[in-house]
Simulated scan of single mutants.
Amino acid sequence: MNRRLRRAGAVMGLLTAFISVNNTSLFTTRPPGAPTLLAHRGIAQRFDPTGVGNDTCTASRMLPPTHGYLENTIASMRAGFAAGADIIEADIHPTTDGQFAVFHDWTVDCRTEGKGVTRDHSMAQLKALDIGYGYTADGGKTFPFRGKGIGLMPSLDDVLAAFPDKQLLINIKSNDPEEGKKLSVVLAALPADRRQMLMVYGGDRPIAALRAALPDMRTMSRSSLKACLLRYIGIGWTGIVPDTCRETLVLVPINIAPWLWGWPDRFLDRMEGAGSRVFALGPYSGGDFSTGLDTPELLSRLPVNYSGGIWTNEIETIASTLDAGSGNP
């Protein structure tokens, strides 16, 4: 019995040593580099997030504005890149005339003077709306952007033309597979090297349709992300990268990151070797995944010399904090 116990102990010791050596970042040869910054919706007006749900009109909860940009516009994206973003995220909806509008909300009622579901309008109708109409920071007493947002809702074609050499993350706002098919037609018309600068995420069904049509695109849905993270936590100690983690976006909430084998450098190397991009997020608490690393305090929770991606709603704050620290959290 003692011999069996000693043998079992030796095996466990060897296994523990293997797991430790195979997943430490001490022996990686990953070169140092500044994090890749992803600006969610470009530069946007901030709002009080307390109690916000999927149907909350965030424009009516705007905090006192500190800049003049409205999210998902050419100007806000240009300002985001100028502030230090490497990638801009943009939300899209199909239009009745076969285009894609760049706009966050499912309906136009919150931010504009219009009514109805966004996708039930033509692009011309959407461009005629004032996307600054509904913003207020004082409960409706004043509307500082009213009259200033007419014609500012761009089409996806407008965005691609305005930023031909920039990286973009496109967000499909529905779970309609037809939307994935329509988007695949638009993206298929682009040169292959341009598609490599684009990524797409959204509902499970449109992402599946898009990936079937364009398997070379980096895509992600909620279920694909969950499958990637759970399977990697299960088998990543071996160094094996699950198929669900290949050619995708891997969004990593900062409170889940320590559970990932080899975090940070070994994990980043494995994901990049599988053709995937990693972006650190704010803490996950059962809600959606749009919480960014938006404060210096959250940024400080990243490992020293972290060189993966960072998802943020506050590109100016995060970029300036990184600049002050010579590019490192």
Rank of each mutant, 00 (worst) to 15 (best):
P264I: 07
L268W: 02
P283Y: 03
W259A: 12
G292L: 03
L260G: 00
G262D: 09
D269R: 13
P258N: 07
P283L: 08
P258V: 14
T291H: 14
G273S: 07
A257M: 14
T295I: 05
A280Q: 03
G292D: 00
W259F: 12
W263I: 09
D269L: 15
P283A: 11
V278K: 04
W263L: 07
E272S: 14
T291Q: 11
D269W: 08
R270A: 08
A257P: 06
L260V: 08
Y284I: 05
D265E: 15
G286T: 11
G273T: 06
P264F: 07
R266M: 09
D265R: 06
D294V: 13
A257V: 15
R270C: 00
M271S: 11
G262C: 09
D265Y: 02
S285Y: 10
L268H: 01
W261E: 03
R277F: 10
W261T: 06
W261H: 10
F279Y: 15
M271V: 14
Y284H: 03
W259H: 03
E272Y: 11
M271R: 11
G292T: 11
S290Q: 12
L268K: 01
A274K: 02
S276R: 05
D269S: 14
G287E: 11
F279N: 05
F279L: 15
T295M: 05
D288H: 05
L268R: 01
N255A: 07
L268N: 00
F267A: 05
I256D: 09
R277P: 00
E272C: 07
V278H: 03
W261D: 01
L293K: 03
W263S: 04
F279S: 11
R270K: 11
R266G: 03
A280C: 10
P264S: 15
G262N: 04
N255W: 09
R266Q: 09
S276C: 08
G273H: 11
N255V: 12
A280H: 01
G275D: 05
N255H: 05
A280E: 06
R270V: 08
G262T: 10
T295K: 12
L281W: 00
A257T: 14
A274G: 12
L293Y: 00
M271Y: 07
T295H: 03
I256W: 09
L260T: 03
D265L: 02
A257H: 14
F267T: 12
G286I: 09
T295L: 10
F279T: 09
G292P: 10
L293M: 13
L281Q: 12
P296F: 09
V278A: 08
F267S: 04
G282P: 09
D294P: 07
D288L: 08
D269Q: 15
A274T: 00
S276Y: 01
D288S: 05
F289C: 00
M271W: 05
D269T: 15
N255E: 06
A257L: 13
L293D: 04
D265Q: 10
T295R: 02
D288R: 04
